[in-house]
């Protein structure tokens, strides 16, 4: 298995509070990795350090063998890393369909400005077709024209997922995607993730508290506590780990 993402020695502290400490983390191509851990363990900080939203204090990040830790966020995204946010980050005021269209057009190559002028601004056929099929995949056709500001959290999370998927990423990083979804929506999410993984071979990193979803989706589970990986392995092994039970699972294990 070839490593798609390799992070070595990532440390980050905020004003003396250590969020990540000498953390190693890797994802193989096509693999699904779950990250769980107590609140404040550093899961979202790890995401942000890997993606360049927050510069880590130390450490290196390689994507597909290339150093990416000096690249700006948008470059890492264009290399094929899609993400969603724990607190939904949508483009206020735009419709659902437009979110997908933005993602489709964000990395346009060639001379997009010239094409824009020639086309008098309209989106291209192939872009519209891509948007339409993504809307269908996510089951968002009914709300396609709705501005996202009034959407339910469940729909909003799907829009974020769709936006990330539009670029056909090789690595998809999801921060608590099922948080706020109801049972049926969570089932749908699991189905979509499964579909994407098997059709596109997308690797997935999943931060999640819904252990049922984690079990269903991931191949490997990491447990983060106080900025350190306290356990890594198969879901069953990790769940059986005494330290994990104490720090994270409590009685629900």
């Amino acid at each position: 298995m070839s490593d798609l993402l390799v992070a070595r020695g990532i440390s980050k502290s905020f004003g003396g509070v250590v969020a990540l400490s000498e953390l190693d983390f890797e994802v193989a191509a096509g693999e699904a990795v779950g990250i769980v851990g107590p609140n404040g363990a550093g899961k979202t900080t790890l995401f942000n350090c890997l993606l360049g939203v927050i510069p880590p204090d130390t450490g290196t990040v390689l994507f597909d063998g290339e150093r990416i830790d000096r690249l700006p966020v948008w470059r890492r995204s264009r290399l094929g890393i899609g993400r969603t946010f724990q607190r939904v980050e949508l483009f206020h005021g735009m419709t659902v369909a437009d979110h997908l269209l933005v993602a489709a057009q964000a990395r346009a190559t060639g001379r997009p400005h010239v094409r824009d002028l020639l086309r008098r601004g309209g989106p291209g056929e192939e872009e519209m077709a891509a948007v339409a099929s993504m809307l269908a995949l996510l089951g968002l056709e009914d709300v396609a024209d709705r501005p996202v500001d009034g959407l339910s959290l469940g729909h909003a999370r799907l829009v974020e997922l769709g936006r990330a998927l539009m670029a056909a990423p090789r690595l998809l990083m999801l921060d608590e995607p099922s948080s706020g979804l109801d049972v049926r929506e969570t089932e749908r999410l699991a189905g979509i993730l499964d579909d994407v993984r098997h059709r596109q071979g997308t690797a997935v990193v999943l931060v999640e508290h819904d252990l049922e979803l984690v079990e269903e989706v991931v191949d490997r589970l990491c447990v983060l506590d106080f900025g350190k990986m306290i356990a890594v392995g198969s879901v069953d092994d990790v769940m059986a780990n005494a330290e994990v039970r104490r720090a994270y699972l409590g009685s629900s294990a």
Binding site: P38, S179, L211, Y248, G250, S251, S252
Partner: peptide
């Protein structure tokens, strides 16, 4: 509203 949203299982217990 959304009591255990985003909470680790051990915190939900608490």
């Amino acid at each position: 509203d959304e009591l255990s949203l985003g909470l680790a299982p051990v915190v939900v217990d608490e």
